[in-house]
Simulated scan of single mutants.
Amino acid sequence: MRLSEFGVQLRKIRIDNGERQKDMASRLGVCQSTLSAVESGTRNVPKGMVEKVIKEYNISEKGKKEIYKSAENSITSVKINLKGCTKRQRAAIIALGTSSSRSTRGSISELS
């Protein structure tokens, strides 16, 4: 299992506080399975989780920046509302999503 960037930070915080996943999940108000999936990167960071971690574990100002950045870097999927898009815009967005899901990391970097 390869941890997400955010998952690495969560695990470090958890271990530094002598907690098991079950303990941290309880403090954050999520199921242990949710916390495990977020750590491993198989699930995006739920809305509000970063703020809960910062509050519950008294994260420093420097740590806050790091944890927000790691959460952002750990996003594996996005939801796009296509309401109000033209047919052409919809087609372009869908084509990008379809091609990026089959792409390698190298070809995705070519888009920037």
Score class of each variant (00 low, 15 high):
residue 6 F to S: 02
residue 66 E to P: 03
residue 5 E to Q: 13
residue 7 G to S: 03
residue 17 N to P: 01
residue 42 T to F: 07
residue 65 K to P: 15
residue 53 V to A: 00
residue 10 L to P: 00
residue 100 S to A: 14
residue 45 V to K: 03
residue 88 R to C: 08
residue 20 R to A: 10
residue 4 S to Y: 02
residue 71 A to P: 00
residue 85 C to M: 14
residue 103 S to W: 07
residue 76 T to S: 09
residue 5 E to R: 08
residue 13 I to V: 10
residue 34 T to A: 04
residue 86 T to H: 11
residue 6 F to K: 02
residue 23 D to R: 05
residue 60 S to R: 06
residue 35 L to P: 00
residue 72 E to Y: 12
residue 98 T to D: 15
residue 59 I to K: 07
residue 16 D to T: 00
residue 100 S to Q: 08
residue 55 K to P: 15
residue 90 R to F: 10
residue 55 K to F: 14
residue 36 S to W: 03
residue 63 G to H: 10
residue 19 E to W: 02
residue 37 A to L: 13
residue 41 G to C: 09
residue 75 I to Q: 13
residue 105 R to P: 09
residue 102 R to L: 15
residue 63 G to C: 08
residue 14 R to S: 11
residue 93 I to T: 12
residue 59 I to T: 07
residue 79 K to A: 14
residue 98 T to A: 15
residue 110 E to C: 08
residue 28 L to M: 03
residue 54 I to V: 12
residue 80 I to G: 05
residue 100 S to G: 05
residue 56 E to V: 04
residue 66 E to C: 07
residue 17 N to G: 00
residue 19 E to I: 01
residue 111 L to Y: 05
residue 107 S to I: 08
residue 93 I to N: 13
residue 94 I to T: 15
residue 47 K to E: 15
residue 57 Y to D: 01
residue 4 S to W: 00
residue 32 Q to R: 14
residue 67 I to D: 10
residue 84 G to S: 13
residue 94 I to E: 15
residue 3 L to Q: 03
residue 52 K to R: 14
residue 81 N to E: 09
residue 58 N to F: 13
residue 51 E to K: 05
residue 29 G to I: 01
residue 35 L to G: 01
residue 97 G to D: 04
residue 21 Q to P: 05
residue 110 E to Y: 05
residue 104 T to D: 11
residue 108 I to W: 10
residue 33 S to D: 11
residue 112 S to I: 03
residue 61 E to A: 15
residue 57 Y to E: 01
residue 53 V to I: 02
residue 13 I to K: 02
residue 108 I to E: 09
residue 61 E to L: 15
residue 25 A to V: 02
residue 24 M to V: 01
